[in-house]
Design a binder for these strands. Structure first.
Lengths: 217, 217
DNA sequence: TCTTCATCCAAACAGCCGTTCGACTCTTTC
DNA sequence: GAAAGAGTCGAACGGCTGTTTGGATGAAGA
């Protein structure tokens, strides 16, 4: 994770004001939701003029979509790289556990308090439920990213009926998408703080263990 | 599921107009989201006057919360009943599989196309991500419902570290909450229709199998 | 028959929304 | 040094938001 293009909090092609808007918008959207944050909230947080959003991005929805597109591409790249490395380690046929780890590890690592990507992953999780029409269209049609993981799982478990593999992949995605601030808070409340200790790597191990066990039969 | 108090689509204590508003609001909120649906959308859909929402419910947020409270209570009751029945079958100590089934089966049965509760479960799923402050407060503080399931799991697996049990419960909840229209559509697209055939009971079996396997070690 | 009361209705309210406009500033280019 | 262009600014636009108001309606009770 030393690639500058990946760890750069805000795309460096942005002008100063544009970058401020991008960062403020991502943060506010991630914390409060897309509809509850106004253009005025964003520009006030960024300390720039109200018209900046429309000047640099065209519209509020276009700003939302640019953040979505940027972060989605980064996450997909990190996942694809891990899947590729796993394939290299196993002569083109990675086992189920390595495939699941490539799917799970990147977003969980981003979510780590020490990372600069907590906001980005919360934004992406939100975009599934309350995204723009353009976002949902992109999520619905662009399945090429998930295609690779589905194909890898199908190849790793040729003994299973394909629909069984697809459903289990769906369950794993549900586990990942449920790691929102509010849900984790509730878990920590329920466990009376027992679950709060985990760092990213421990949580990844727990999730991969659980998911791999789900694929065991 | 023959209890009238549970299968009643709209609480029968409501007056005619109040019931129309309740039903229209639940449907529109479930399909389009909470923030995107206006009071005017609701009253137009219900065919009643604009002021009806404020007259019968006080405010838009209060209407949202009443739907949330009603459906949450019904779902919790159905789950608690299944857990209770499982405890009766096993002399007070139900196995992991029966506990998970009590958690999973009710919302999946509600989601069945033949049921009259598809809207309700979609509404409840949405309330986790985009709910009112009052809703999130209720979800955060009222853990008494989940408490029973966590305690049952802890009792069924005394060999596991408690935090491990809590995390696995969290993963199972993620599987359940991911059954939104949009996510299922994407799954069906990815699988090229293979996953579309399943009825509620088959899906419940798949989910319980997966979750139980996650608890196997 | 008169009163009471819950319900319903059209209309208006104040406020916030995303977006646009025209002027102004500053740097770059010829 | 003039022209051009990108960026920023305050101000305003039309439209939609949730909510409120005051009167009309009609059934129930004395």
């Amino acid at each position: 994770m030393t690639d500058a293009a990946v760890t750069e909090p805000v795309p460096e092609t942005h002008a100063l004001t544009k970058g401020l808007v991008f960062a403020a918008a991502e943060r506010l959207f991630a914390v409060h939701g897309f509809q509850k944050v106004s253009v005025r909230d964003i520009t006030a947080e960024a300390g720039v003029n109200l018209a900046s959003v429309n000047y640099h991005f065209g519209s509020k929805d276009a700003l939302l979509f640019e953040i979505f597109r940027t972060r989605t591409a980064e996450l997909n790249r990190a996942r694809a790289r891990m899947l590729h490395e796993a394939a290299d380690r196993h002569r083109g046929h990675p086992p189920v556990r390595d495939i699941l780890e490539a799917l799970i590890a990147p977003p969980v690592r981003w979510h780590d308090p020490n990372g600069d990507r907590r906001i980005a992953v919360q934004f992406l999780i939100r975009s599934r439920g309350e995204g723009t029409e353009a976002m949902r269209e992109a999520l619905r049609t662009d399945v090429s990213h998930l295609r690779r993981f589905a194909d890898a799982l199908l190849a790793a478990r040729p003994d299973l009926a394909p629909e069984e593999v697809y459903w289990r992949l769906h369950f794993v995605l549900g586990m990942i998408h449920n790691n929102r601030f509010a849900e984790l808070d509730r878990l920590h409340t329920l466990s009376e703080g027992l679950t709060r200790e985990d760092d990213a790597e421990t949580l990844i191990r727990r999730m991969v263990d659980f998911a791999e066990a789900g694929f065991s039969r």
